[in-house]
C-alpha cells in the first residue's frame, strides 16, 4: 500500500515540476510511438482495405497471418529487427541499430498487424453493405478504397489507437533495438525497467503513471479532434 502511494507522489512530483529528464524521455516515447503509428497506418489501412475488397491468391493466408501476428511478442519483434539491423545483418551498413529510427521500425512491425487486421474487419463489414452500390456506380478500385476508409473512419480510429496503445506500452522491442541509451534512446518503458532493476520502485511506478497519463491524453485528444472534424454520431 505504502509503495503505491509513494508511486503516486513520485508521479505527481515528476509531472508538476516538469522534470527535464522526464520531459525528454516522455517526448521520445511519444515521438517514437506516434511515428510508428503513422507508418503502420500508412501501410496498414490501405492493406486492410485491399484485403477486404480484392480477392487474390494467398489472401486467406495473409488474413490468418495478420490475425496471428496481432499477438506478436515485442521481444521477438525486437530480436528480428535487431538481426536485420545488426552490423552483421542484411541492413547493417545503414548503422541504424540503437537509434530512435530502429525503435520506430520495430514498433511499426509490432503494430502493423493490429492496424491492418482491425481495418480489414471493419472494412469487410462495410464492403458487404456498399458492394452493389459501388459496383453499379462503376467506382474504380482507388475510389472504392477511399470511400470505405473514409466511411469506416470511426472504427479505423479505434484500430489506430489500439496500435498506439500497444506501441507506447511495449518495452521488449525498444529495449533490444534501442539499447535504453540515456539522452538518445531511453523511453518511458525502458526507464521503468531500469528503475525497477535499481530497486527504485516508487520512481518506476511514478513513470508508469506518467505513461498512463500520456496514453490517456493522446486518446482524449484524438477523440476530441475526431468529433470536431468528423461530425458527431
Amino acid at each position: 500500500m505504502n509503495g503505491l502511494s509513494d508511486g503516486f507522489r513520485e508521479a505527481f512530483r515528476l509531472v508538476v515540476t516538469l522534470d527535464p529528464a522526464l520531459v525528454e524521455i516522455a517526448g521520445l516515447s511519444l515521438f517514437v510511438s506516434l511515428s510508428a503509428v503513422a507508418a503502420a497506418s500508412l501501410i496498414g489501412l490501405p492493406l486492410g482495405a485491399l484485403i477486404s475488397v480484392r480477392s487474390f491468391p494467398g489472401r486467406g493466408v495473409i488474413v490468418v497471418l495478420l490475425n496471428a501476428f496481432m499477438g506478436l511478442p515485442p521481444v521477438v519483434v525486437g530480436l528480428v529487427v535487431y538481426l536485420m539491423l545488426s552490423r552483421s545483418g542484411p541492413f547493417g551498413v545503414l548503422g541504424l541499430l540503437f537509434t530512435p529510427t530502429a525503435m520506430i521500425i520495430a514498433q511499426t512491425i509490432l503494430i502493423l498487424p493490429i492496424i491492418a487486421s482491425l481495418t480489414r474487419q471493419s472494412i469487410s463489414d462495410l464492403w458487404d453493405h456498399y458492394r452493389e452500390l459501388l459496383q453499379s456506380l462503376d467506382a474504380t478500385p482507388a475510389q472504392i478504397t477511399a470511400t470505405l476508409l473514409w466511411d469506416a473512419r470511426r472504427s479505423l480510429l479505434t484500430a489506430v489507437l489500439a496500435g498506439f496503445g500497444r506501441a507506447i506500452a511495449e518495452v521488449g522491442a525498444v529495449m533490444i533495438v534501442g539499447g535504453n541509451i540515456e539522452h538518445a534512446t531511453r523511453v518511458l518503458t525502458t526507464a521503468i525497467a531500469l528503475e525497477t532493476s535499481k530497486g527504485n520502485l516508487a520512481l518506476a511506478l511514478g513513470l508508469g503513471l506518467v505513461l498512463l497519463i500520456l496514453a490517456l491524453v493522446v486518446n482524449a485528444a484524438t477523440h476530441a479532434l475526431a468529433s470536431r472534424t468528423m461530425g458527431r454520431r
Binding site: 453493405h129 456498399y130 452493389e132 452500390l133 453499379s136 466511411d151 461530425g231
Partner: peptide
C-alpha cells in the same frame, strides 16, 4: 442508374450521399 430493393446509404450526410455519384 439503379436503386436496389434495400439501398445502401453511405455513412455520410444526406447531401454527401446524394452528391456521391458526381464525386466519383
Amino acid at each position: 442508374a439503379i436503386v436496389f430493393q434495400k439501398p445502401a446509404v453511405l455513412r455520410r450526410s444526406v447531401r454527401e450521399n446524394v452528391a456521391y455519384p458526381l464525386k466519383l
